[in-house]
Write a protein that binds this DNA or RNA. Sequence first.
DNA 1: GAACCTTTTCAGAAATTACTGAAACTTCAG
DNA 2: CTGAAGTTTCAGTAATTTCTGAAAAGGTTC
Lengths: 183, 183
Amino acid sequence: MHFGEMGSRWGINRTVSQIYALLFVSPDALHAEDIMNALNVSRGNVSMGLRELQSWRLVETESRPGDRRTYYRAPDDIWLIFRTLAEERQRREVDPTLSMLRSALLTDPASEADAVAQERMREMYEFIEMLTGWFAEVQRLSPKTLTRLMGMGSRVGRLLELVDRSPAPNESPTTLTPPTVKE
Amino acid sequence: MHFGEMGSRWGINRTVSQIYALLFVSPDALHAEDIMNALNVSRGNVSMGLRELQSWRLVETESRPGDRRTYYRAPDDIWLIFRTLAEERQRREVDPTLSMLRSALLTDPASEADAVAQERMREMYEFIEMLTGWFAEVQRLSPKTLTRLMGMGSRVGRLLELVDRSPAPNESPTTLTPPTVKE
DNA sequence: GAACCTTTTCAGAAATTACTGAAACTTCAG
DNA sequence: CTGAAGTTTCAGTAATTTCTGAAAAGGTTC
């Protein structure tokens, strides 16, 4: 129920969110009728919801010998789920927004106000590109490494700030060679 | 228009998104009637939209001497906007979800299936806590440092992976002392 | 190839969400 | 105070989204 509520705040259909939550906590794969009964929704609704979840690559199907029904299961690797969600949102929402901004930036500003608007859009464009670019790159690291990086929290960044404040000569701020890790 | 569309995919009312986009690209602060005219929506709708945006701390008001009308402006510091959004979503959606999960984890599992469900929820709980905790910490760094960190992309992480593969003796994997930055 | 079981589709109904416009309210200068 | 200018509220309406259930389609088995 809570996930249905939260889903709808994130633009995801209530039933779709609930189906996902149900599959996520289920020890075994479920078939359509299990879901119908558990959530009290119609057959058609379950079918559409499952299709939506498959289009997001969030559920997998499974078939069992001697049973005609299709069973559905939600992968349980949380890093993978996170990655999948990020990739799909990138493809469906971020990329179209970037290309819209790009084309808006190509037109000639008709007024001073337009020029300012373009400047703001350019900032936003660059911000989104930087953020999603970084994200895509970092996602390629192993979950283990990512977990460690997160465990270090802001320490990595504070280190950089330290370096910034006491500038050493002939130092490139954007390259980093293997440090000596002590202690 | 595009932002209205995208907003609704993220659970944000179309008009609210459009008002925000309009203010964001406007060189000057606008008053309610400007917005009504620009977007062709009713006075009441604009009023409600602005209130919503203020509750998200995404727009500020401004009053001008000799003019009774309230002027609205969207701050233009993108890092600040990003941070504000993250903080509000954390407060409104992540925190309630975490506390729901916490209470679900406190109940005694009534069956084997319940125990599995709890285990899944525990994993999700820990993942969200780690991610948002890291995020909150990193957000405290200056935009300049953050930009540099992002510029380094996955290099920081690859460094860690490298260290993992060729283990040096007596090394704690979770602490990091200032490295020698060369070149 | 026909009976059977399951899934998908989709038109219409239901529910939800968003919007309007007018009245009520607030603010402030005179 | 008063009245003009501006803003908010909210009941009613409109638009959109979601859901249902029955019919069609898809697959399997014998």
